[in-house]
Every structure is written in C-alpha cells, then in structure tokens.
C-alpha cells in the first residue's frame, strides 16, 4: 500500500520534471523568435560589422540553437542566470529582492483569502439554494468573468476615490510604520484576494456538494441530524482532499493575477520586473522570470495532484 503511494507520487514528480523540461524548451524557443540580431541591437546602429561579428562570437550566438539551449539550461542548473542586456547586471541580483516582495504579497493574500473563501464555500454548500447561496454565487460569477484589472479598477474606485480610505495607484517604497505597511499592501491584497477567492469558493462549494449526495450523508439526514451537523461532521471530513486540492489550484491563479496587480499598483515584484523587461526586450531577464513563474505554477499544480492522490484511495488503482 505504502510503496504503491510512493511510486504513484514519484511518477507524478517524474511527469512534473518532464513537463518542466518541455516548458523550459518552449520558453527558450519563444524568446529566441525575436526578430533582429541581438548583437546589433546591443551595439546600436553605428557599430561596425566587425564589432557585431565579434560580439556574436563572444556571446556564442553563432552556435546552433540547441547548443545554446543546453548551455542556458546548464547555467540555470548551476544558478548562473546570465546578465541583463539592459544594464549588464547579473539577473540573479536584479531578481533577488523582487522575488521576496512577490512571495510576500502572495503569502499575505493566501493567509487572508483562504479562510474567507473556505468559510464562504462551505456555508454556501450548507445552505445550498438559499438567498445567501445565490447572492454569493452571483458575486463569484461576476468576479470570475471580468478581467483582473477590472477588479483592481473597481477596488481603487471604491476604496480610494469614493471612500478615500486608501492611497490610489501608488506603492510607497519608504514605509515607516506598520500601519503604513498595512495601507500600502491593502489594495493589491484586496484585488488578488477577490480573484483567487472566487475560484476557491466555487471549487470548495462543488466539492462539499458532491459529498453531500453520498449515501452516508443521506443516512445522517434520516437520523435527524441538523444541516450544519450533517455538513460539518459527515460530509466535510471526506471533502477535505478535494478542498485542499482546490486551494492549491486556486493559488496558481495568483500567478496570472500578480502580473496585472503588480503593474497596476506599481508593486516592486518579479512580475513588474518582467513586464518592464518585456518593454525593453531584455531576454535573459524575461527567460528567468518566465521560468520562475512556470516553476511556481508547476509546483502548485503538482502539489494539488499529490494531495488528490493521498486523499482519494480511488485514484490509487
């Protein structure tokens, strides 16, 4: 039994690893499609053909694409992320602090939104079909079907323009007190929380409702158990696997959301760095940022799968 689980999880991790290699190939290929000669772009229009040829040789641009891919991969594995084209600084230095900022934002959002979303998801399942359930559902569909920047725009309109509780589109770098920190974080966190909570509420509700149709829950109903007791004692323990799975999956929506949110609120994170790198066509920086995001995403969805395997014996065939 235990060895079976272990081999299943190992197989899943193997798939994740293969996926990561394919993904890195796609990221490399996509950034290689850039038209124009990088050496020429770096040196400017006035450069002599000899200088351009020399730089091409020095950067190894004359080698076949596959060889460059291998070299790039090798560098990544050894922690050598290359140098930024824009200012010649090592990519690792550029990313270091930014990564912490993004992780911080993600962590605060998760701590804030997971309990709220679980509460709403479970209670709406408990009172399925009630006015409360329908109101929450309507809101959730509303949030899911609009772009993230719209949620951000609305948050700014409500909290900064009409209520004037929070500063609008600025993220102050010089945060002095805890209160200011809270105010600075509030808007990005609120926006991101809306985006990922909507997914989480929907999936949690569906997970609980699907266990509610099990025979043992019906039995509890026939014994005369109250609705909360039926859901909390009988249905919920068996829905925990799918719920945790749903949480991990929803957290992967953070990655998409964070790109928009960091741009709007001018938050100094990896996503903002990447969007700026796209504007300046700074390839090594784009590649590394893209790999960081793909890695994070892959970790989250693999985690979701592993939890699903652990919690559901039927997947262990």
């Amino acid at each position: 039994m235990n060895t079976q689980i272990r081999s299943l999880i190992l197989a899943r991790l193997g798939i994740a690893l293969i996926t990561l290699i394919i993904v890195s190939f796609i990221v490399f290929a996509a950034t290689e499609m850039l038209p124009g000669d990088i050496a020429q772009i770096l040196l400017g229009q006035a450069a002599t053909p000899e200088a351009v040829a020399g730089l091409r040789e020095a950067m190894g641009l004359n080698d076949p694409a596959f060889l460059r891919f291998l070299r790039w991969m090798g560098g990544l594995l050894q922690g050598d992320l290359g140098k930024s084209y824009a200012n010649n600084m090592p990519v690792a230095d550029l990313i270091g602090g930014r990564l912490m900022n993004t992780l911080q934002l993600a962590a605060v959002t998760a701590i804030f939104s997971v309990p709220v979303a679980l509460f709403l998801g479970i209670t709406t399942a408990m009172y399925q079909g009630s006015v409360y359930d329908r109101a929450v559902n309507f809101l959730v569909i509303g949030v899911i079907s609009v772009p993230e920047f719209l949620v951000a725009t609305l948050a700014v309109l409500v909290f900064a323009v009409w209520l004037q509780w929070l500063p609008a589109l600025s993220f102050a770098n010089d945060v002095q007190s805890f209160w200011e920190l809270l105010r600075a974080y509030a808007m990005p966190v609120i926006t991101l929380s809306f985006v990922i909570s909507a997914q989480m509420i929907r999936m949690t509700r569906a997970a609980v409702i699907s266990t509610l149709s099990a025979p043992y829950v019906e039995m509890a109903l026939l014994k005369g158990a109250s609705r909360p007791r039926m859901v909390l004692r009988h249905a919920l323990p068996n829905a925990i696997g799918p719920i945790v799975n749903a949480v991990a999956l929803s957290l992967s929506y953070l990655l998409g959301g964070v790109i928009i949110v960091e741009t709007i609120f001018n938050y100094p994170g990896v996503a903002k760095l990447m969007v700026d790198a796209v504007a300046t066509r700074d390839l090594p920086l784009i590649q590394t940022c893209a790999m960081i995001f793909c890695l994070g995403y892959l970790i989250l969805i693999t985690l979701a799968d592993v939890i699903a395997i652990l919690s559901n014996p039927r997947l262990r065939k």
Partner: peptide, 9 residues
C-alpha cells in the same frame, strides 16, 4: 506541458 505555462505569461 503547454497548459502548465500560465496563460498570461
């Protein structure tokens, strides 16, 4: 593998 790249990215 293609789906495990976030779409916006």
């Amino acid at each position: 593998a293609l789906t495990s790249i976030p779409s916006k990215l």
